[in-house]
Simulated scan of single mutants.
Amino acid sequence: MNLYDSVRAVAEASGEGLIDWNAVTRAARSAVDPGDLSLSAATRSGYARDVRDARTRIQEVSAVEFDLPDVVEVQNRHHWVDANIATFERVMGTLETETRGFAPDLGFARVLNTGSMTVALSFLANNVLGQYDPLLLADAPAEDHALYFVHPNIVRVADELDVSEERFRRWIAFHEVTHAAEFGAAPWLSGHLEDRMERSVAALGEGSIDREAFREVNAAMTAVEGYAELLMDRAFDDEYEDLRRKVEARRGGKGPVSQLVRRLLGMGMKRRQYERGKAFFEDVVDARGLEAASVVWERPENLPTDAELDAPGKWLARVA
């Protein structure tokens, strides 16, 4: 880790766009310690076993058929940066195209935006534990997706929480595989999210906000996170309440700078999505069972609206 090199990379940002992505990559890698990735044979086989077991258990619990990603990687923090830089560039590139005329001083804006992206990627690289990536807005075929585990972060957080590394790793694997199950059960979901994201970006480029598109993206992601929590609770083959309690306490116990960055990155919103989505699906399951909850993935029209997330009975009356 070399903060001087990171700052220099940002300050020397160049090119024609509002963000110098090569500089972001160099700066983020310089700002973040890659972490140890010397895996024992037992640890390597443990990751593979956890993913296989998660798939089997989730299929048994949900009766949903899905394929695991072709790419399942155990990474260090630099690997995670490299894997995600293209995603950031795709999403921000669309916004950059729409808003290019709003930057009176392109050089200053480029340095500022390059620095902002560096902070975001560096923070996430130090905190992401596992990630299911459906490769939204990619040119690749829709079936391409990937599953990542950031091993140094998993080891560090397991130690901070005073829990078994093997058990914590397995819990993370189950959570990420549930996302693979959702996108596998709903092949239309990636396109649905992409369409709303593109609408939102286009509106921003015109100087307005497409509130309906934002609401639809938020409602869809709340369903994704809530269903994953529901499924994981029923599929995980061990006690988990202590893990969840410790993770929630850790999120709330972060320092002021970390809390600020989390808010700026929308991570507080994601936590709300977990809680709100899980409450919605728990009410649905209590009323009609898990099969009724799974109906949400049959077609886009079955996604709950923002209002229905707080009134599951209305969604059941409409859909199930």
Rank of each mutant, 00 (worst) to 15 (best):
T56M: 08
S45I: 11
R44W: 03
R55H: 05
L68R: 08
R100T: 06
F88S: 06
E98F: 12
A63W: 10
E96I: 10
T114Y: 01
G93P: 05
D105H: 07
R77T: 11
N76R: 04
T87Y: 12
G115M: 09
V119P: 03
R55P: 00
A41C: 02
F108E: 14
N76P: 05
R55W: 02
L106W: 04
Q75N: 10
A42F: 04
E73R: 12
L68D: 12
S116A: 15
W80Q: 03
L112Q: 14
L135A: 11
M92S: 10
M92P: 00
A83T: 09
D50A: 11
G101D: 13
T94K: 13
P69S: 03
A120H: 05
G46A: 00
Q131H: 15
E65T: 14
E89M: 06
L106D: 04
F123V: 02
S122G: 13
T94R: 15
S62E: 13
Q131T: 07
P134A: 08
V91Y: 12
R90M: 03
G115A: 15
V64F: 14
Y132N: 05
E96R: 12
L124Y: 01
S40Y: 01
L95T: 10
V51G: 06
D50P: 00
Y132Q: 01
D67T: 13
R52P: 02
S40T: 13
H78E: 11
R44T: 02
P104M: 06
S45E: 15
L135D: 12
A120P: 06
G115L: 10
D50R: 00
T56W: 06
T43E: 14
F108Y: 13
L106E: 08
S45G: 06
L112F: 08
R49D: 12
A86D: 15
V128S: 07
E65Y: 10
N127V: 03
G93T: 09
A63H: 15
G93D: 11
I58H: 10
V119C: 05
A86K: 14
S40P: 00
E73P: 02
L124H: 03
L68C: 10
E65F: 13
V119Y: 06
L121E: 09
D133V: 00
W80Y: 15
R52H: 12
D50E: 04
H78K: 11
T118K: 10
G46E: 00
T114F: 03
A48C: 00
R44G: 01
L112G: 01
G130F: 11
R110F: 10
G107A: 09
E96W: 04
A63F: 13
F66V: 07
L124T: 07
D53I: 02
R100C: 02
A41P: 03
D82M: 06
